[in-house]
């Protein structure tokens, strides 16, 4: 972690969460936010830590996960540029409930709790953006609960691939690099089981693995 000089208002204006703030507010915020860099695999937040800031990702990807005492992990989400995290504790004044680790080198902006709360109180649109963000995460979490409780590992892998895929030239493609270990931790299965399922999906023609990307064939469908 290294301290880097303060940020420009232009950088802040590009962040969707802050895009509706006025020029004055952005200037005020630019003076108080800090910018931090993290290397791959470094821990950004630890479960149980006190809560003091909101984080916005400028570049890189991070994973949000929970672990048990035996070191088993479940990944709650993977976040990328312009997404924010750490808002839950600022809203309910509780310690961090999950761990956040950098999956690749990351650059972040940190906004302190008082600054975040002042921005929220002064800007209804920002409050709405935060609420919509929470709703999106809650819907994702509910879907994850549904698939953990109701689907077998095949269904869960298929759902995850479909949700991660982007449409490129009319094809559904998973371009984000996802290790089998990470997939396993996102769906609550072992790495070996995920390898087996992915191999079956490939042999049955549901998916095609091309170097770092996975192409999903049209015949893969989910019951939900």
């Amino acid at each position: 972690m290294s301290g880097v000089p303060p940020v420009s208002t232009a950088l802040l204006r590009n962040v969707p969460l802050l895009s509706l703030l006025s020029e004055d507010e952005l200037a005020l915020l630019a003076r108080v936010v800090t910018r931090k860099s993290y290397t791959r695999n470094s821990q950004i937040l630890g479960a149980g830590d006190p809560t003091d800031s909101l984080y916005i990702l400028i570049s890189g990807r991070i994973k949000v996960f929970m672990g048990d005492l035996d070191g088993k992990e479940v990944i709650l989400s993977i976040l990328g540029p312009n997404e924010f995290f750490g808002e839950m504790g600022l809203i309910d004044n509780s310690p961090r409930s999950a761990n956040v680790v950098a999956l690749e080198p990351c650059e972040l902006i940190c906004i302190s709790k008082p600054d975040f709360k002042r921005c929220l109180a002064d800007n209804f649109e920002m409050a709405m953006t935060v609420m919509r963000g929470l709703v999106k995460r809650l819907r994702d979490a509910d879907k994850q609960i549904g698939s953990l409780a109701l689907m077998d590992v095949f269904g869960r892998v298929a759902r995850l691939l479909l949700e991660t895929a982007e449409v490129i030239n009319g094809e559904k493609v998973v371009t984000k690099k996802l290790s089998k270990q990470d997939i396993a931790r996102m769906i609550g299965a072992s790495r070996e089981m995920v390898s087996r399922v992915m191999k079956h999906l490939q042999e049955a023609g549901y998916i095609e693995v091309r170097a770092d990307t996975i192409v999903i064939r049209d015949n893969i469908q989910l019951s939900d």
Partner: peptide, 14 residues
Amino acid sequence: RLREADRKIGSLAL
């Protein structure tokens, strides 16, 4: 609700 959902995911998976 999100904290409850996350705990539920944790217990379903782990």
